[in-house]
Design a binder for these strands. Structure first.
Lengths: 198, 198
DNA sequence: CCCTTTTCACCTAGGTGGTAAGAT
DNA sequence: ATCTTACCACCTAGGTGAAAAGGG
């Protein structure tokens, strides 16, 4: 079993990944976490899921003058460690491998009381997304094999800082340029973006 | 195994169940075919599907002055007999029985060249929707039991005439009043509709 | 002062019937 | 004359960042 992460632009982002109470009580991840999977048994069932680990025990703040993140103290109490199952789970290996798997329904929130099953994060903290593949073992005593039926993949380039508002104007512009839902804020052709924002 | 059809207003409809070429090459069924299912094995897998049979070998036309459908000759050549699988298929009996099953993704077209897998019908012809339940037999020689693993349910009240344009103003008004996507054509509160259109 | 929440206009994406033009 | 198609405004439903207001 092998997995490659498909989104090349992660390192550019300090993400507005968090937030809000009703009506907008959560946000999708953007860019979306996407993987290409190899080596599954085409006929077997698998569950695909993601979770998020704190990268460290720190809280951060953004230093505007130096355009960098600084440690601002100890982390806030950890949020509930929820898990997001890909909504197509369970599905056959053949189905998962057929095309890139996209976690575009995954939503993040900072609302500790969230009851929609969204991933809860602390703003101004750093997180490492993790991707898990669970083989659905048809044997009756499958609990015994839980360990070997479970594989975890970590792509360090997908680490990010959760925020409730963007701290860096270039990130804002990059999101506006690349997220179709933010098209209303574009002031030029997104094709030209890498050139005229260098 | 037992099934009840959940939509009470079928008999009122001569349906604009058909048509068009791109960009609008098909239409949903409205009202949606919905069923409540009883008596499945909660732990077994089932596929749910629908198809449409011609009610007779006739073509119809609408007589405006008498507000009724008249036979207008022999049926056109039959369209490809396609099938629509409920997109949640396969799923466990417990899942299907938990709530009303709604075929709201089913789409109809009159385009014989349709390559989206939509149901193809002849306009001005009458059809009988059918609902099928297929038990996914885990036995290796399951083909042998195909017959007994397959149940069909027919609700005669769901018969309709496919059209490309409504032939009756009261049908148009009823659709406008009851379909949320037609709200733009309402000229009064839909709650008042049964009263002020009697 | 720094961060969070609310509300908003503006998008994406797609399902309606009206209407006028097209086809037979 | 009758039916079909193309295009349209107008909805549903929901995802954006901006800006202003709120909170410690």
């Amino acid at each position: 079993l092998n997995v490659s992460q498909q989104n090349a632009c992660w390192h550019l982002y300090l993400c507005k990944y968090a937030l809000f109470s009703p009506p907008q009580k959560s946000m999708r991840m953007f860019p979306t976490f996407q993987v290409k999977i190899f080596g599954m048994d085409p006929m077997a069932d698998y569950m695909l899921l993601m979770d998020f680990l704190p990268v460290d025990d720190k809280r951060y703040r953004y230093a505007f003058h130096s355009s960098s993140w600084l440690v601002a103290g100890k982390a806030d109490p950890a949020t509930p460690g929820r898990v997001h199952y890909h909504p197509d789970s369970p599905a056959k290996g053949a189905q998962w491998m057929k095309q890139i798997v996209s976690f575009d329904k995954l939503k993040l929130t900072n609302n500790l009381l969230d009851d929609n099953g969204h991933i809860i994060l602390n703003s101004m903290h750093r997180y490492q997304p993790r991707f898990h593949v669970v083989y659905v073992d048809p044997r009756k005593d499958s609990e015994k094999y839980a360990e070997e039926n479970y594989k975890t993949f970590v792509f360090e380039e997908t680490r990010f800082t959760a925020v409730t508002a963007y701290q860096n104007h270039r990130i804002t512009q990059l999101k506006i340029a690349s997220n179709p839902f933010a098209k209303g804020f574009r002031d030029c052709d997104p094709e030209d973006w890498p050139r005229n924002h260098r």
